[in-house]
């Protein structure tokens, strides 16, 4: 009846506050690693976290997971999930290598076909989810194995495509206008997804579907079409990530992008997007990606971690801790207010 007058403050301001908090954490994290992770070696040159090269490295490494996280943000806003993006990245990398190396296509033609293949892979997810009304988690768990399996079948698990021309490697290994080339591509995609999610009726529809798919249907929104579109878009971006991955490493192999989907989901959720759909922002996702990338790379620069040779373990541990902390952090105000109201009355 006269229920919650308290949450009328609006969820928008809460998201904003959460993003601000995450930004503060990110800056603190960065300065921590800058302070403890930067050293001078015997020859007197500065090494570790504080060097420009290392910062560019972080940027390069975060582009592919960042792209997947951007692809997953609309998906998760619709209360869906796509576990197959990492596998699709691997499949697309192999397809690209094969089309160019064995198929004799030019790089641009192979790249264009790879993007089409990515969209088709996403389309497969979309068809299964919207036509057969299967749950996204199960569908993409299936295609997660399927895409990786296909990639391994094509290469028999052994072939690795290398010797890509310098013009292509430029996108993954060089700088353009002072920044790693792929950072520009990433920024472009990020801006596009931001506009899509926050400034268009498509983004509005994604949220509506996430909050209440039935409510969206009864409002006359094209629910199936919008849901299909987020998965196709995710496939397309996974293909782009595959191209950048291949250009960065200079090789295409079947295990490319293994486990990336989990990092990407972590980044999205850390960025404040609700796994139940509806709530979230692209800015949050970008901050989430940055927080994880800085953590991972920063740890590898800490002398104590280097001495213990435990960078992988530590980054896994701390990413998990950060995620759980973020999730508890978002419910703490609610817990606190209910605790207070329970004790005020006595």
């Amino acid at each position: 009846m006269n229920a919650s007058g308290s949450h009328s403050a609006g969820w928008k301001s809460v998201v904003l506050r959460y993003e601000t908090l995450l930004f503060v954490v990110l800056v603190a994290e960065w300065f921590f690693f800058y302070h403890y992770g930067t050293t001078t070696n015997r020859r007197g040159t500065v090494v570790g976290f504080g060097t420009l090269d290392r910062q560019f490295d972080i940027l390069r490494h975060s582009c592919e997971i960042g792209l997947l996280a951007l692809a997953l943000t609309p998906v998760i806003l619709t209360a869906g999930i796509d576990l197959s993006v990492g596998s699709l990245l691997g499949l697309c990398a192999i397809l690209f290598g094969k089309l160019w190396h064995d198929g004799g296509l030019s790089i641009p033609a192979a790249a264009a076909l790879t993007l089409v293949a990515g969209a088709l892979g996403g389309g497969l997810n979309a068809t299964l989810i919207t036509r057969l009304r299967l749950p996204p988690l199960i569908v993409t768990l299936g295609t997660y194995s399927l895409f990786r399996g296909l990639a391994e079948a094509i290469t028999h698990g052994a072939v690795t495509y290398t010797d890509f021309p310098a013009g292509f490697l430029f996108f993954g290994q060089e700088r353009w206008l002072g920044l790693p080339t792929q950072a520009w591509l990433f920024a472009l995609v990020a801006a596009a997804i931001w506009l899509l999610v926050h400034r268009t009726t498509w983004g509005r529809a994604f949220r509506t579907i996430g909050f209440s798919p039935e409510g969206a249907r009864y409002a006359g929104l094209p629910v199936e079409r919008r849901v299909a579109q987020v998965y196709v878009l995710a496939g397309l971006i996974a293909a782009l990530a595959a191209l950048i991955y291949t250009a960065r490493l200079g090789q295409a192999k079947a295990d490319a992008g293994t486990g990336y989907e989990l990092f990407a989901i972590t980044a999205v959720v850390l960025g404040g997007t609700s796994i139940f759909g509806g709530r979230g922002s692209v800015t949050g996702t970008l901050l989430g990606v940055a927080a994880i990338a800085v953590l991972k790379n920063g740890l590898a620069c800490l002398p104590v971690v280097i001495r213990l040779n435990a960078a992988e373990e530590m980054s896994g541990l701390l990413t998990g801790a950060l995620l759980l902390l973020a999730l508890t952090g978002s419910v703490l105000p609610k817990l606190w207010s209910s605790f207070r109201s329970r004790h005020r009355r006595t």
């Binding site: 969820w11 949220r207 209440s212 409510g215």
Partner: peptide, 19 residues
Amino acid sequence: RHGVVLEMPIAQNMTMAVH
């Protein structure tokens, strides 16, 4: 369940069918 999306602002609820 169907008439109003409870989590979304009134304004967004009202414009939902006239995008």
